Simulated scan of single mutants.
Amino acid sequence: MLVSEIMLQQTPVVRVLPVWEDWLGRWPTPAHLAAEASGEAVRHWGRLGYPRRALRLHAAAAAIVERHNGQVPGTYTELLELPGVGSYTAAAVAAFAFGRRETVVDTNIRRVHARLFTGAALPSQSLTAAEMRLAAELLPADVELSVRWNASVMELGALLCTARAPKCAQCPVRHACSWLAAGEPAPSYTPKGQSWHGTDRQVRGAVMAVLRVADAPVAPEMFHQKPADLDFEPEGVGVPLAALHRLNSGPEQLERALAGLLADGLAELHLGGFQLPA
């Protein structure tokens, strides 16, 4: 479950599922993943985005082998000590994988709480201490019931109490909803989707696509020159390299992308070229 929780951060289930299945097929235990180079984790992360999560999963697997005899720990405190595991992920894994009473607060739960108990159309743009206090107060004292509560509220937010088109007529708690009672007031802000086209993130993703399929270090000029202008081409990179060049990124943006990947540990220099970490 630790793998799925990290993969699902800012990524929809439909994109995660095939990568998750492939990942567990390759590395069914933390020990299997820890035995591989971190670059292999990045390679098989595919196009899920935010590939630093792959490095964190690899580091967490190594820590689990070193500190917990290869078994994923089951308490919030132990999970929180793993590399790349934050408070939400630690609480979710402890609750849903190990049946512990933990306050789990994701975007869906926050939205249900906001509408049902405070009358707001949407929660605040960032998680507040008041929201955490409310979630803790609402959590049932019974351990088994608390796990079901977390899962139920999360599903209610994901399936019915959605951000843009809530299905209020189907909601089992609509008669107790403060937002409906207040006349469905409009949100105080308009949610904005993250931009993608033309951004440094898009270029970084395109560069990573090249590195994932390269069998040898990729020379810097490969990223800057059009394929037709090159005298050579590392085996297998033609398709992702062509996709990178179709973005028509300027040299400064490409340099930022390459420098950022090096700084984040997602790439390294070897024999004068770029490759996934060894």
Rank of each mutant, 00 (worst) to 15 (best):
R256I: 07
E252P: 00
G99W: 03
R246W: 02
L80K: 15
H197V: 15
F274S: 04
D142G: 07
A176T: 13
R115L: 05
G25P: 01
P51Y: 01
A136H: 13
A136W: 09
L160H: 06
C171K: 13
R212Y: 01
W45L: 00
A165V: 07
G157F: 03
E155A: 14
R100A: 15
P30G: 07
A114I: 09
G236T: 03
L159Y: 10
L2P: 09
D229R: 14
A267C: 05
D142H: 02
P51E: 01
F232E: 14
G272Y: 11
F117E: 11
V203D: 02
F232K: 13
A60G: 07
A206N: 04
L258H: 06
H245F: 03
A136L: 10
R212H: 02
L244M: 04
G46Y: 01
T107P: 02
T107G: 12
L244T: 02
K192Q: 15
T75P: 04
V3A: 14
V153Q: 11
A243V: 09
L2H: 08
R174D: 10
P28D: 05
S4K: 13
W196F: 15
V173W: 11
A141Q: 13
D215G: 15
G205L: 02
W27Q: 03
V143F: 02
A228T: 13
V93P: 10
A158G: 06
T107W: 00
T75F: 01
D200I: 12
Q194I: 14
H175G: 06
V207C: 11
A176S: 14
L241N: 09
V143L: 09
M132E: 13
P123I: 00
A181M: 12
T162M: 07
T199D: 11
